[in-house]
Write a protein that binds this DNA or RNA. Structure first.
Lengths: 255, 255
DNA sequence: CCTGATCTGATTGTCGACAATTACCGAGGG
DNA sequence: CCCTCGGTAATTGTCGACAATCAGATCAGG
């Protein structure tokens, strides 16, 4: 969807900067919200823009400019950028400003490797303490997912929301709150967004769904080792898919 | 050293706040430094204070007050606090201000569990790509450590710096930069500082040293599985030590 | 004496302006 | 023609003040 336009309309310049986010990032469309601080609204907006690909990796961000666009002062905007920097969605280039963190094949691979062990850990833990109600809840999630999948045409499969909920719920069930926080970190959403844009196909989503079911079965059986193994394979499969798709896109779409 | 004074001089009030950081946090003692931004200096200073225990978990932090203490305006100070919040060293209590993140036994346990798999992963990776030079470097590190340990009296063992370097180097060798960044996150230093203050004994440090040697042996042999296993055990042993010591301190020292 | 509303003080959120520093660009020299 | 050296504009870092919000205290009423 956005992918092609983005790649066509915004080229990195000779130094790797992408400058024309103009027109993508715009004023808040929810201006008269209740009392959420402006900094939070801006944070949310920019974060979303990065996740959805509105703001491409490599895009340069300047405080003054963004502040004007959002109609806020630089203080809250700065706060948002700082937070995003700490979350590794934005990176500071010394003496050059900030840019949306470039997420190249290597970083993607590294992140997936980490996610593999973390989600594996969550699964192993969850298996030992999951309740029947929680198992049922996970199953419901997958049923709804299957229904949504049946109704969607192959071309529209990218529109489907990610199955964020599933992983999120397992992290919560694991009972390790620090782990849950870590797995809810925005960097993983960034990764998921990349996956969705590049690598998602209807077949892969269907295969993924059965993988999810197997995982729930293992959890229900209280088999931590199996649950961990299956989850790790599941994550590894996504990794392979994304890496391959990225490499393909790299070859075809861009120099 | 500081431990006792802290516990004696600053009690949590009825709401769990500790208010008297007064006298501990003070002006920068490195004022005429080169051109590092004030925000960075403040960040460094507060971060250190938290790690060393100068600022105890639960201590309330107010922007105005800290700004005056450091002789800077609220802007750079705010930046520092925001960063620390994103790094989970400080937490925001809605409508109540900020406080140094309380690191209770449960959180400690959770963090160790995560560190176990992450450091295990780093070891597994490192074993496959480590060079002889790097092996030698690690060995040197341990030799120096052993020397330092021999010269120190049991009572002073807490003064010994943590063996941060060792773990850091393995993370670097692993070649996974995202993992390296994650393992260099300040939260782990926080954990280490806690360990050092509560649980460190000369025996434990000695045992830890031999554990480290075994890990290097496994790395040198290119045995990723063994290296991972040994590292996980090593981390688990620290975990046990800290949990036990914390529980003991909890029982004796505080209500 | 306890409960609830109002007021006050304290603290955070936001703003515009200024200072400091750096990158970019053009001029001059090799 | 390329390289080096300032000057300039842009951008970030910092400040003090103001506005908005909330916690705690005070006081009236039950």
């Amino acid at each position: 969807m956005l992918l092609k336009e983005c790649f066509v309309s915004s080229f990195p310049d000779e130094k790797g900067w992408i400058v024309d986010y103009y027109g993508l990032v715009s004023l808040e469309d929810t201006p008269p919200q209740e009392h959420v601080p402006a900094s939070e609204r801006v944070l949310e907006r920019i974060g979303q823009s990065i996740l959805t690909g509105e703001l491409l990796p490599g895009t340069r961000l300047t405080e003054t400019d963004l502040a004007q666009r959002f109609g806020v002062s630089r203080a809250p905007l700065r706060e948002a950028l700082l937070r995003l920097e700490e979350r590794q969605l934005i990176e500071r280039v010394p003496f050059s400003g900030m840019r949306v963190a470039p997420l190249g094949p290597r970083t993607i691979d590294e992140l997936y490797e980490i996610r593999e062990v973390l989600e594996g850990l969550a699964c192993r833990r969850a298996a030992t303490i999951i309740t029947p109600e929680q198992v049922e809840e996970l199953r419901q999630l997958l049923v709804r997912r299957a229904e949504a999948l049946r109704e969607v045409r192959a071309a529209d499969v990218r529109q489907l929301p990610t199955i964020h909920d599933f992983h999120k719920m397992i992290a919560a069930i694991s009972g390790n709150r620090a782990l849950e926080r870590l797995l809810n970190g925005e960097i993983w959403n960034y990764l998921r967004a990349q996956y969705r844009r590049f690598a998602r196909s209807k077949e892969r989503v269907e295969v993924g769904l059965t993988e999810h079911m197997r995982i729930v079965d293992a959890l229900a059986a209280g088999d931590g080792d199996l649950a961990e193994l299956l989850m790790r394979r599941h994550v590894a499969a996504s990794r392979q898919g994304l890496i391959a798709a990225r490499a393909r896109a790299e070859r075809e779409g861009q120099p």
